[in-house]
Amino acid sequence: MSEPLLQVSDLKKYYSLKTGKLFGGRTTVKAVDGISFELAAGQTLGIVGESGCGKSTLGKTIIRLIEPTSGRITLDGEDFTHLTGAELKKARRKMKLIFQDPFASLNPRMTVKDIIGENIDIDHTYATKAERDDRIREVMEMSGLNLDFMDRYPHEFSGGQRQRIGIARAIVLPPKLIICDEPVSALDVSIQAKIINLLKSLQREMGLSYIFISHDLSVVKHISDRVAVMYLGHIMEISDKASLYRSPQNPYTQALISAIPKMPGEATGEKIELAGDIPSPADPPTGCCFHTRCMHAMPVCSQEQPELKQVGPDHWCACHLCKQCVSV
């Protein structure tokens, strides 16, 4: 296998919180706790999980908008974790982020042209203004934006249009990797379909890699090559998508897939209803973080944290039950 574009190993992000007690103790919230994966060029890794599982923190930690507590990020063969100053700025050109809320992520006082062009301006990529504007026009066309709207402001656009502006901004200096943090969650289904199609066609044209963060398993399945399932800062299962959706190994993944309201024609297996809510990340359960809600919990689950084990050709799962089924 060729060198992966992005390698993340044992990435951790801990936050320190005051407990609220007088002469207070402090407690740590393990938002991202020992995440490792690889992403090949031109591929899409989907990251799914419920709110509070650390998937957005993971995205922001990879691009170092949030500094990781420990761990290593290797981008394109270069250690990204300890870069500073001009080198960091240069390396960040390869990695861009698209945000969930297209209403909060665009500066309301800048025109569309300037929002998209800001990257170019900071970078001084083009010598003349005409060249710069040509490039902006080009990416606006690629993103499906009407060129007449170049001088308008974000508030004049609908949610789907704004998300296109966010995408145009991300590709104006061609990156290698785009981290999409819930890019379609705020959109209606018919708009969502358009944005997903756009992301896929850009991937084909530009050879982009995506990390696609979402809580929607159907959308993730549609766009990803591999999928990782997160729960309380841990990867519970990571696999190529066919294997993950056909035979999920982790009880959490099974429950997650069964909980999606199904359309007619989709296989509806037995509904697995999980009791309770996600535990607070400030006070995670000992052992396997899922054992408090798991229907197969065994005594060992509350004592020992399961490691990711290989259960198929490209299928890893962190669960004590999976010991028996490993035969690869």
Binding site: V189, S190, Q192, A193, I196, L217, S218, V219, K221, H222, Y245, I257, I260, K262, M263, G265, E266, A267
Partner: peptide, 10 residues
Amino acid sequence: GLIRAIPMLD
């Protein structure tokens, strides 16, 4: 159109 725009699991 609405039904077809939804990505299906299967």
